[in-house]
Write a protein that binds this DNA or RNA. Structure first.
Length: 409
DNA sequence: GATACGTGGAT
DNA sequence: TATCCAAGTAT
């Protein structure tokens, strides 16, 4: 790759060494005190790097400490039950990270004699480890001169050299990687990477940076040219797509709730939740759901009357009865609660419907044997032992609130 | 190479 | 309230 093609004017050797020196001197006095900065254990550093992906460090720290208690070794992670894994990650988001970590741990047991591999290429080969994490673990745990190109590094480098390449485009990462490879201090690669990350996280933040406080401001083309506000270039993200679901809160005679394990969708895969079915009834996503429902009623919400959609015209309650082989007594009143939840790529609108099962119902036993589904009756006292993602937590919270309101009346 | 994949804090 | 964004990777 020729950096000149991207308008990058690389510095002289002397200037690069001066940059390293000033950056590391600043880091030595200003680095953040983080739990994983007190260890050289590649396993612990790996955990910290995976957790920190797209996640604020304030959030990460308690999860990190607990994770190392629950899974102190590669072997313990490789052998962990899935339920415990999800519980360890509950609330962190991007749950494929922890599934991939377990797969990587199993790879280490199988291919690397239970040890963390010590070369960049081997580390990169592990599931869930991409160029960033491979560089971070290589440099921090093994002192290998590999850059760790994350959003911070790209932002800082973009301002140092006035790079125009969109940092949101994965294809452009290699440009920043190439620059970072030339800048990185081979004597202290881990500290160098973390210094740039610390700098980017605070002084060189995306919003309201304080470039005059930067220890390397005289190296920054954007600072010197007064173009800080133009870098980095980043396209705005797309709005999440609106999706509407009917949720079914079903209790049997013992008061246990019907829960289903998500085994078909990658989104929140493995988590337990109240059964939900997509409601294709068109609604104006610009309208607030709650005001829309004030005009609606039970039949309207529960019927799948969208045009050109699966099972159009068949009420969702009927579809539920068919798919789950259950015939609940549906609550007549429209005491449905509404929940919204925003993911990075979807915005969910959930209408809650209630139903109850009589133990004499001949279909009761069939429910747990429905093909393609894993369902279970669960007492609310046992909810604590399940990992629940946020939509399920919100639904449960709403249900409890409804019960409280009933008691008061 | 564009999109899927979570959540919560800041403004 | 709406929007952005935070130590990315897999497909």
């Amino acid at each position: 790759m020729n950096l000149e093609d991207y308008g990058v004017d690389m510095w002289s050797t002397e200037k690069i060494e001066d940059f390293r020196s000033k950056l590391l001197a600043w880091y030595d006095h200003n680095k953040r005190d983080l739990p994983w900065r007190h260890t050289k254990d590649p396993y612990a550093i790996w955990v910290s790097e995976i957790m920190s992906q797209q996640t604020r460090l304030d959030t990460v720290i308690p999860y990190y400490l607990r994770f190392l208690q629950w899974f102190p070794t590669i072997e313990s992670l490789a052998n962990a039950p899935q339920d415990k894994l999800l519980k360890a990650w509950e609330g962190l988001g991007y749950y494929s990270r922890v599934r991939n970590m377990q797969q990587a741990a199993q790879e280490m047991m199988d291919k690397f004699q239970g040890q963390f591999p010590q070369t960049y290429e081997e580390i990169l080969s592990l599931k869930g480890i991409g160029p960033y994490t491979a560089g971070a673990v290589s440099s921090i745990a093994f002192d290998l001169p590999q850059p760790a190109v994350d959003g911070n590094l790209m932002r800082v480098i973009s301002r140092l050299f006035e790079v125009e390449a969109d940092i949101g485009d994965p294809a452009n990462r290699k440009i920043y990687q190439e620059i970072a490879e030339q800048l990185i201090d081979p004597k202290r690669p881990g500290d160098f990477n973390q210094a740039l990350m610390d700098l980017g996280a605070d002084i060189e933040s995306p919003k309201n940076p304080r470039p005059e406080e930067s220890p390397v401001k005289e190296f920054s083309a954007a600072y010197l040219h007064g173009t800080m506000d133009k870098y980095p270039v980043k396209k705005p993200k797309k709005k999440p797509r609106a999706v509407r679901f009917q949720a079914f809160i079903i209790q049997n005679e013992e008061g246990h709730y019907l829960l289903e394990k998500n085994i078909h969708s990658d989104l929140l895969s493995g988590f337990w939740h109240f059964p939900i079915m997509e409601n294709y009834q068109p609604f104006d996503s610009q309208l607030d759901l709650f005001s829309a429902n004030q005009e609606g009623h039970f039949g309207l919400v529960a019927e799948n009357i969208g045009h050109d959609y699966p099972n159009q015209g068949i009420p969702l309650t009927s579809q539920f009865e068919k798919h789950y082989n259950l015939r609940p007594s549906w609550q007549e009143e429209i005491s449905v609660a509404q929940i919204t939840h925003v993911f990075s790529h979807q915005k969910w609108y959930l209408d809650l419907t209630f139903g109850s099962i009589d133990s004499s119902d001949e279909n009761l036993q069939l429910c747990t044997q429905v093909a393609d589904k894993e369902v279970r009756w669960v007492a609310k006292e046992d909810f604590d032992s399940y990992a629940f993602a946020k939509p399920q937590q919100k639904m449960w919270q709403s249900i409890q609130q409804l019960e409280k309101n009933k008691k008061r009346q």
